[in-house]
Simulated scan of single mutants.
Amino acid sequence: MVEGRYKDRQEAGQTLATHLMQYANRRDVLVLALPRGGVPVAYEVARALHAPLDVFLVRKLGAPGHEELAMGAIASGGIRVLNAGVIGTLGIPENTIEQATEREQRELERRTQEYRDNRPMPVLRGKTVILIDDGLATGATMRAAVRAVRQKQPQRVVVAVPVAAPSTCAELAEEVDEMVCVRRPEPFFGVGLWYENFAQTSDDEVRALLTRATKEIPVPSWNQ
C-alpha cells in the first residue's frame, strides 16, 4: 500500500473540487476533461462547481517500445507538441514521429465523433476554462491541450489535477494562469501508482458521464 493514494478517480475528483471552489456558481466557468481518464475526475469537479462539463480531445504520442512515455501529443485544431528530451534520449527518427502523429490523428477524429456526436464545441472566448486530467507525468498531453485552448481566446486557463510530477507542475505553471496540483509526490514514478483503482475508463463511461452532466448539473447556458 502506497501512502497518499486515492481510492479511485471519483474520490480524486471530489478532493480536487475542494481546491477549486472559488470557481463555483460562476457563469463564465467551463470544465473541460481530457478523455478518457480525466472525465470521471472532471465530472465530480463540475458537479461541485455547478459548471458545464465537456471534453477536449488530446492524444498522446507514445514513444516506440515505451508507449506510456510521451514523446509528444496532438490536440484538436492541428496542435502538436513534441518532447525534445524524450525524442533525443531515445533517438526517435522523424518518420516514426510522423507515423505516430497520423495514427493518433485518426483516433482523435474517431473519439471526436464518439463523444461529441456532432455536438458543437462550447464557446471558449472570454471564458474561464478549467482543464482536468486524472494526473500528469510528462505533461505532454495537457500542454497540447493548453496551447489548443489558448487559440480559442479564453479569458483564463486553469489546469487542475489530483496528482502530478512536481517538475511537470512547475513547467506547466509557466503556461497557464493557474496550476492546481493537489498532490506532488517525490519520487513520482507514474500516475497509476497513486490510485488504488486505476482501471481504464471506457468510451461508454465517458458518454454516460457527459450525458449525466447535461441532465443533472444545474448550469447556465454555454453561450451566456
Rank of each mutant, 00 (worst) to 15 (best):
L82M: 12
G77T: 15
A33I: 03
P40T: 13
Q113C: 09
V55A: 10
R59L: 04
P64I: 04
Q99A: 15
H66L: 14
G91R: 03
V81Y: 11
L90G: 01
G38L: 04
A48E: 11
N118Q: 15
G38N: 08
V58G: 03
T101R: 09
R106V: 10
L30Q: 08
T112C: 03
P40A: 07
K127G: 12
G126P: 12
L57A: 10
I92P: 00
Q99H: 11
D28W: 02
P64D: 07
G88T: 10
D117E: 14
L108Y: 04
R80M: 13
A84I: 00
L124D: 04
P122L: 02
V39D: 08
V58Y: 03
L30V: 15
V58H: 04
R27V: 15
R80P: 00
I79D: 01
E107L: 12
R110C: 04
I97E: 03
P120N: 12
G77Q: 11
E104M: 13
L90P: 01
A33M: 05
P122D: 05
L34V: 08
I92H: 02
L53M: 06
V123E: 13
V58D: 10
L49A: 07
R125N: 09
N118S: 15
V55F: 05
A51G: 06
L61Q: 03
H66E: 14
T89E: 11
E109G: 03
R59T: 07
T96V: 14
G91S: 05
R106M: 13
A100G: 04
E104H: 10
A100T: 15
S76M: 14
Y115F: 15
R103H: 08
P64W: 02
R36Y: 10
P122G: 05
E68P: 01
A63W: 01
Q105H: 14
M71D: 00
R47K: 15
A46Q: 11
A63E: 02
A73P: 05
G62V: 09
E109K: 14
P120F: 07
G88S: 11
P93H: 09
R103W: 02
G88E: 11
F56P: 10
A46I: 14
S76R: 13
T101S: 06
T96D: 05
P122Y: 05
N83H: 03
R111H: 13
G78C: 10
E44I: 07
L32W: 02
A75V: 11
K60P: 07
I92A: 01
E102S: 13
P122V: 04
N95F: 08
P40V: 09
G78Y: 03
E44D: 10
G62K: 10
V29M: 04
E94N: 07
L30G: 08
N118C: 02
Q99C: 02
V81G: 04
V31Q: 05
L90Y: 02
V123W: 01
A46V: 14
A70Y: 03
E104N: 09
E104I: 13
L90H: 00
A63M: 03
E109Y: 09
G126H: 12
H50K: 15
P64N: 09
L32I: 06
G126Y: 12
V31F: 03
R47L: 07
P40E: 11
M121W: 10
E67H: 06
G37H: 07
R111G: 08
A63Y: 02
G65A: 06
R125M: 03
G126V: 13
L30R: 10
I79L: 08
A84R: 14
V81C: 05
Y43H: 11
E104G: 09
M121P: 00
Q105P: 00
